[in-house]
């Protein structure tokens, strides 16, 4: 990482540049199913990040030779819109985007019961509309919701969150400035039910104890994100459900199946 002359401090009196405390997440808003034509979709606003995730499948795989005889073929595409950054980003997938696509795929795949759809394919598209640091975590979080919305059988959700080090302190959920000027960034994705870690990266330098602290903090963050995911899903599906509970008492069981 290039060492820049730090003109301003990132933490002043325990408050960060965007007004958060060191262990605070940014505001997260998740919307389920904004896209009509996709099988499943999700939109997430994570601080200033704005991300759409769409899922297609299970469907036939093209090109055909990619199909696996024993499980579904799972594909991910992480892509930043040309207008998502301060400088126009060329729309062709960059090295970084290819890497993040792969990392996202590996983070999500263990949660999906791919064995149920042999020879089929599942495609995930993550489109970064506006970026402000921590897009991979936000993208994974949104994609997991989109997968649920597509009705794809899964063992668990995947929640992701990063921790890092700025001004010598371990903090939760770095934004763009903190990521650029800070000392280290540790993105983590977990499957909250089992506690399994499906993504763990580190950019920058941390001592062993610092790393442990950062990991612990990121895991805490992931759990908070998981709660928000659950909340968003419940809200999206249960709103139609809500008046039912009252009716049910008066009208009794009438549901088929």
């Amino acid at each position: 990482m290039p060492k820049k002359a730090k003109s301003e401090k990132l933490i002043r009196r325990g408050v960060r540049t965007d007004g958060r405390k060191i262990h605070d997440l940014r505001n997260i808003k998740i919307e389920v199913g904004p896209l009509e034509r996709a099988d499943g979709s999700a939109y997430i606003e994570w601080g200033n990040n704005k991300i759409l995730a769409a899922v297609y499948g299970p469907r036939e795989v093209h090109p055909r030779h990619l199909a696996r005889p024993d499980r579904a073929f799972f594909r991910c595409r992480y892509h930043m819109a040309p207008f998502s950054t301060t400088e126009r980003k060329r729309p062709a997938p960059s090295r970084r985007e290819r890497e993040l696509s792969k990392v996202t795929r590996v983070a999500l795949e263990p949660s999906i019961l791919t064995k149920l759809y042999p020879r089929a394919g599942i495609d995930v598209f993550i489109e970064i509309l506006q970026s402000d640091g921590g897009t991979r975590c936000a993208g994974i979080t949104a994609a997991s919701i989109a997968l649920v919305d597509a009705g794809i059988p899964m063992k668990d959700l995947v929640a992701a969150c990063a921790a890092g080090k700025i001004d010598g302190k371990i903090v939760l959920d770095l934004n763009e400035v903190e990521d650029q000027e800070g000392d280290a960034d540790v993105p983590v994705a977990i499957m909250p039910r089992t506690g399994g870690i499906s993504l763990l990266q580190m950019d920058g330098i941390l001592s062993q104890t610092e790393f442990k602290e950062a990991l612990e903090l990121a895991l805490e963050g992931c759990k908070q994100v998981y709660e928000l995911q659950k909340e968003a899903l419940t809200k999206a599906y249960v709103q139609e459900e809500a008046p039912v509970k009252d009716e049910e008492k008066s009208e009794g069981e009438e549901q088929n199946e």
């Binding site: 039912v244 009716e247 049910e248 069981e253």
Partner: peptide, 11 residues
């Protein structure tokens, strides 16, 4: 389609 999983739908 919209109200599939609610009770008293037939009525």
């Amino acid at each position: 389609e919209e109200k599939a999983h609610t009770s008293g739908l037939t009525n």
